[in-house]
Design a protein around this nucleic acid. Sequence first.
DNA 1: CTGAAAGCGCTTACAG
DNA 2: CTGAAAGCGCTTACAG
Lengths: 329, 329
Amino acid sequence: MTTLQQVAKRAGCSLATASRVLARSGSASDQMVRKVRRAAAELGYRPVSAGPGRAGRQPIVGVLIPSITNPVFSSSLSSIENRMLMAGHGVLIAQSHYDPGREVDAVEALLNERPTGLILTLCNAATSRILGMALPPTVLLNNRPTADYPAAVTVANRDAGRELTRLLLDLGHRQILFLSGNFAASDRAAMRHEGYCLAMEERGLEPLAPLQIAFVGGYDQLDLSVVLGRASPTAIIASNDLLAFGVIGALRREGFQVPRDISVAGFDGIAIGRLMEPQLTTIEMPDASMGATAASLLLDMAENAAPARHLEIPYLLRRGGTVRDISAD
Amino acid sequence: MTTLQQVAKRAGCSLATASRVLARSGSASDQMVRKVRRAAAELGYRPVSAGPGRAGRQPIVGVLIPSITNPVFSSSLSSIENRMLMAGHGVLIAQSHYDPGREVDAVEALLNERPTGLILTLCNAATSRILGMALPPTVLLNNRPTADYPAAVTVANRDAGRELTRLLLDLGHRQILFLSGNFAASDRAAMRHEGYCLAMEERGLEPLAPLQIAFVGGYDQLDLSVVLGRASPTAIIASNDLLAFGVIGALRREGFQVPRDISVAGFDGIAIGRLMEPQLTTIEMPDASMGATAASLLLDMAENAAPARHLEIPYLLRRGGTVRDISAD
DNA sequence: CTGAAAGCGCTTACAG
DNA sequence: CTGAAAGCGCTTACAG
């Protein structure tokens, strides 16, 4: 490990001067600046946290998401990373894998790096043990704000669930099944389901019991035979697009065609839904701009002591070919 | 910021004792351990790098990938993160966005955190300015090893390109167009293209000039009208699956059906290719196991001073419905 | 098991 | 503009 001491020696100056040059604090002659910079480059010098205040290092923020491989989250993450890069902050990531237990460990790991701030997408913000911990400035992303953590960037998931369900009702569907990841693993899914219930009740219909499916690395091998044997839905709402794809694949394996036999809709608006044929009907979340917004809010709070705010970003219902009008049938 | 001093005071012991308890070095009475831990928890204490050796903090590794939103990379990243979590290391990420210039900045940002090691997927390992820098133990992922950086985890991209092209040739295709991201942005794409050329030449055919398309956040709005006007390929090989999806969408917009009018194949084997209908023909990269392998290799090098190695992981040609046999036509 | 003290790499007034 | 020195938060022999 190269120390500042070594750099100073090579540059032929004192520790203090070398420090001033590299930290850009205080002034130094052009010649000295050159010598020190050169010595530092040659030795591959990297500062180590230090001194009173410990302001030496590049600040970093920690980001927790359920799963990097879900495009909704990787897209948010990407825009967070971009925004933070501009601000000269590093980004440290952690995944909860939709498991409240691992979530705690993951945040612990982030905290060990003493981040300037945190952006968290929790399994369930209301019950998470994390929010009892001593946290640096924190913004919730996709979780509604809590009393302790009032900074949040969200989408109106309940409204979205209601609007999507209304669309299906308007198309003549009555037997609408809500298929979801575990509610305990995603309070977003729970909110979306509430919206579904509201829409059903509005029309005097009994909501079907929701079906919760654990996320195990993917939904490739989803088996719907039992479900379809019991209920016979004309439409299925999946609590997220990845699950919707899994549902469509599973239906195909069972010999059903979408949307001819069953309509399918999802939530998230991941890019791949627009590339498939027919295009997926979904609630489009502005994931990239949500990420950027969360990052900006966090920076504002951490650097300018701005007050915590709750920002609700509008979503968009995108109707694709996976839902069919059955009112004329 | 809470200091160890404050924790010690609250626990009623000396700085030294508090340090020993929290760093698990040296011994302390059970009672003392409890008191110190409790005080640390109450104050939300987090260690800051320190002391001789600076071994205090959790070690971290830096990972550079072209783009988090490409499932191949997010999948590798996810398995790297999992492997590192088990080893008690944090993971810091950076994106190059397929831009060699941003790549340098991104690695600089990673280095500022003094990572124990680095896992890099470079635009072009042979020409990258990064490999001239003073780096900690480094593993290349998806780039072939260089003289300075002999540790690498790769797939035989040239062979894969050849094998995929042979498949199309065997199906009767002669006019096979290779469509690619910018070669300067991806030496993988260049290798795959070489394989394409080899296969064509093997059969005494002239390879068509490759078409390079810049990646600009996605391939949603790809316009192939000009291309299809000039050449009239019966098959298109895209240098990666994301591009292949873009191609299929663009073809559809131009009124072509896949595979009836044109066959399409890609590289990567991202999950979504198996969910679409027809399934994408592609070269399946074991992205998750490549990530885990790179992580394990890096840990072995950083912790056990293991020698750098080059590991080549087998790929798999997966034939889906997007290619058609035209030999009988 | 515990504490006083030396020491790490660094920064920042304080002199000159 | 530059350096000697004090000080930061921490760890680790060294005593007891």
